[in-house]
Design a protein around this nucleic acid. Structure first.
Lengths: 345, 345
DNA sequence: ATGAAAGCGCTAACAT
DNA sequence: ATGTTAGCGCTTTCAT
């Protein structure tokens, strides 16, 4: 590439033999009659030293050519891809779609692209991640509970891993809802309505998170003198809520049911509606968990416990945008839950 | 980089000054005592000429180092990133979550990563896409109805744009459900149950797709001699279903309601349940559209019309994996819808 | 079969 | 402020 080439406004040796590529920075520089680096500086998002007049020429050339930087090439230099991967089990595991929508929107706001990685099963996790782009992203948001903090650091050899599945250690960054206040408020609500006996329908007790959550319920219930007559296990799903509700002995009086997911609560509600044999929806208080938007439907007006999704996402983004700062400040961020009263509670 | 360096198993000049980078192909080559290109060939997924013994050494070295290729760098050479972007308005616009889950899973099966781009609003679309990675992906799947086929080709330099929003032209690739059979079957079902008068609750008639759908309904209804007593407009949402249902005049007898979305049908059902003034759920047949998994819930046992999601995704993937073939074969693929009978129909 | 070398498109020293 | 140059990590000619 000779100097005279660079100043010609026409096809260059480089562009000639490639048929109709996208315009490159090289092309822009040539058209503007400046050096490659000058063009790079002019187009850079942070203020780099360029003569105002020169910058204009470059910008004009870029516009004329319909130039758009290749993030891959940029990434190769800067080691920043602009890609953030969101690691989930299945899509449905993100119990709330709204959260997902807000998260992706905010990521885009701060110049990141969301890439969804669906793990599906435990075994494939490690191998899969190694092979994929996820291995080289700016940050990874771990929603999947298949991955622990150590593995996460091992997989992504970056510090930019944010644990959102409740599995954190002292070294990791994390954001986690604080279940206590919401549970406390829900139980208080029950107590105010003269609830004396409660049934607990929980998820897998293998999860640390769930164990802790159950402890919160029991502590709060005890505080108000509410007896836990039964504890049943489900897997957070609607179907498991149905199954659990059917196991409740009608003769065994209970005047409130607390479920650790809204989906289970929905299943419970549908069973209660079908039964005329002692447990009547009108007399029974039902509390869910997650505050799914589905609980706004007329047919599932279930009181629930949840956190502010925008708040949550904001915490995640704050860890993302300035990881240096994040490393100094608190590594584990929390967002409080609160009680959302509806018809059933 | 001297030859002796290459044969030493220790830190090389290159690795030394970069603090703890990920191992590169260079590192693998050095450890295996082969050239860079030999290592590349050995690790290539398609069979390149390498001595079997050499390949083994390279593979071993790669394993020992925990090497994993950098897709960005590969992409810079091959112009293939392994990224596919899914362009949507909002996440909720993908009326079915399941579809999303299946799609991402299958993309991963064929070695692609899904990147979600949330457009949010029309105006930002063009500018946004130009700046982002999406501009340089292997393919773009357009679910957002903000983007037409021409714009899509303009945005993404590639031909690998698949229109999934119903807005296609002769040049574009597309997959689209064929609404006719499902509608025909639903109407036939109504006719078999002595339905004589029907109400139609539709979405925005500005959409070509919706207009066509309505035409299908009217044709099928006419064929069975069913009278359309009223046509109301909603926006596909639950809330708009509620609003529409409240507008139905109780004195105006109708014995079936057809909605062009399940969400609207859910709203309608909830209104019907509340009303005791003439329209009784038991006597009224209700048909939705989309076959949402929510219609499997006890409280919304709504008969619906939908397509097989796996089938649909398979069509999309088929266009993706071999675009050359796709360009020869049919460019517009369809998946048939069918009727899913539940309690309400 | 194999290695050297030339890119892919860009950024970041490094001089000037 | 500006241009030159050396990478970023990989694939691919092109000789051998």
């Amino acid at each position: 590439m000779t100097l005279s080439d660079q100043h010609s406004g026409h096809q260059t040796t480089r562009t000639r033999h490639k048929k109709s590529r996208l315009p490159t920075l090289q092309d822009v520089a040539e058209r503007a009659g400046v050096s490659l680096s000058a063009a790079s500086r002019a187009l850079s998002r942070d203020q780099k030293p360029v003569a105002a007049e020169k910058r204009e020429r470059v910008l004009a050339a870029a516009r004329a050519l319909g130039y758009s930087a290749n993030p891959l090439a940029q990434g190769l230099s800067t080691r920043q891809t602009g890609l953030v991967s969101i690691i989930v089990n299945h899509i449905g595991d993100l119990s709330d779609l709204d959260l997902f929508d807000i998260l992706i929107g905010r990521l885009q706001d701060v110049g990141k692209q969301a890439s969804i990685v669906r793990l599906g099963s435990v075994k494939s996790a490690r191998d899969f991640l190694r092979g994929s782009i996820s291995y080289h992203v700016d940050a990874a948001l771990i929603f999947s509970d298949f991955i622990g903090p150590r593995q996460a650091r091992d997989f992504f050899r970056t510090n930019h891993v944010i644990m959102l599945n409740g599995r954190q250690d002292s070294q990791s960054l994390s954001v986690q809802p604080d279940d206590a206040p919401g549970i406390q408020q829900a139980v208080e609500n029950a107590a105010r309505h003269q609830v004396e006996t409660a049934t607990l329908i929980t998820g897998r007790e293998s999860s640390e998170l769930e164990k802790q959550r159950i402890a919160f319920y029991r502590t709060a219930l005890a505080r108000y003198g509410i007896l836990v007559s039964t504890q049943l296990h489900g897997d957070y799903s609607y179907a498991s809520g149905v199954t659990a509700a059917r196991q409740i002995d009608p003769r065994h009086y209970t005047d409130a049911i607390f479920c650790t997911s809204d989906a289970m609560a929905m299943g419970v509600l549908d069973v209660l509606r079908d039964r005329e044999d002692g447990i009547i929806p009108g007399r029974m208080r039902l509390y869910g968990f997650d505050n799914l938007s589905l609980t706004d439907l007329h047919s599932y007006p279930i009181s629930s416990i949840g956190f502010d999704k925008r708040d949550y996402v904001e915490q995640v983004v704050s860890l993302l945008v300035d990881p240096a700062q994040a490393r100094k400040g608190p590594r584990h961020l929390g967002v409080p839950t609160r009680f959302y009263g509806r018809q059933t509670g």
